[in-house]
Amino acid sequence: MTSATAVRGGDAGIGAPRPRKASGPSRGASPLVYLVALVVVGFTLGPVLYAVLGGFRTNAQLAESPAGLPNPWVLDNYIRVLTDSSFWSYALNSTVIAVVTTVVAVTFGLMAAYPLARYQFRWREPLYTVFVLGLLFPATVAIIPLFVIITRQLQLGNTWWGVALPQAAFALPTTIIILRPVLMAIPTELEEAAVLDGASRIQFFWRIVVPLSGPGVVTVGVLAFVASWNAYLLPLLLLQEDRKTLPLGVADFSSQYSSDTAGVFAFTTLAMVPALVFFLAMQRRIVSGLQGAVKG
């Protein structure tokens, strides 16, 4: 992935080739810098590590010395969560909803971005503006009617689709805004060559545009996936019981067993593992995606 990106030069959404890293000759690091770095790392990772370690302790240990290390280490809490079928059903729901959201948002977004980037037609800019304006409407604004529409008119209450489709819809603006310049950047010569070879624009889309927009697609895909994976408000209103996603499960567990601190830590830790693994694997994409979306 990395080498492919390097060859194509520049990440998705970022127009200009990336400037050199600022690292002047006399910019070495002093001990102070390392100290600050250490404090920042401690502040950042402290709570996460505490939760991970807390899961290996008993409630008695936690009460006795809140800041201590596991002694002895207990696997009980983690085993309890891992053998709990509701944990796995939360994880399954989260995964399915995030995958559907991502696939729908990326497929529809890429298709829509294509004519908005490369066709000449009268309604192009107004149409683009409609999608851009979507950025101004967070799901919060429309949440009550969304709830009514999805549960009554569409009969999709408490289903995977009922959450995934609106999430994909709200991911469309970002997707299209990031993908449009990516598609614009595909050289005109390629299109001309394809036309000379007798390809229609639809064929050009499938054979050239889709393969060439790989890095951009990964970026918007990751953004949509992470947003869906972390979403709380919409699932909170729409999903019940065995359809709940991980964030809902975590919140439930935490309020039901709030005195079982060790259990809460174990549950939370296991719930954050998928997000962390995914982040580490996709780090470059997430970061470049955010920067690209923000740079403007």
């Binding site: 729908v104 497929t107 529809f108 977004g109 298709m111 829509a112 294509y114 004519p115 908005l116 066709y119 037609f121 309604w123 149409l127 409609v130 999608f131 979507g134 409407f137 604004v141 429309a142 009550i144 009617p145 969304l146 009514v148 529409i149 489709l165 609106p166 994909a168 819809a169 709200f170 469309l172 299209i176 624009r201 639809i202 889309f205």
Partner: peptide, 26 residues
């Protein structure tokens, strides 16, 4: 026009149903 409809249609439909309509209803 048909090609634009083919490409933009699905996104536009999704957007209208789950963003524009709810906002209007709000």
């Amino acid at each position: 026009a048909l090609e634009v409809l083919f490409f933009v249609g699905p996104a536009l439909a999704l957007f209208v149903v789950f963003v524009v309509w709810p906002v209007a209803r709000a």
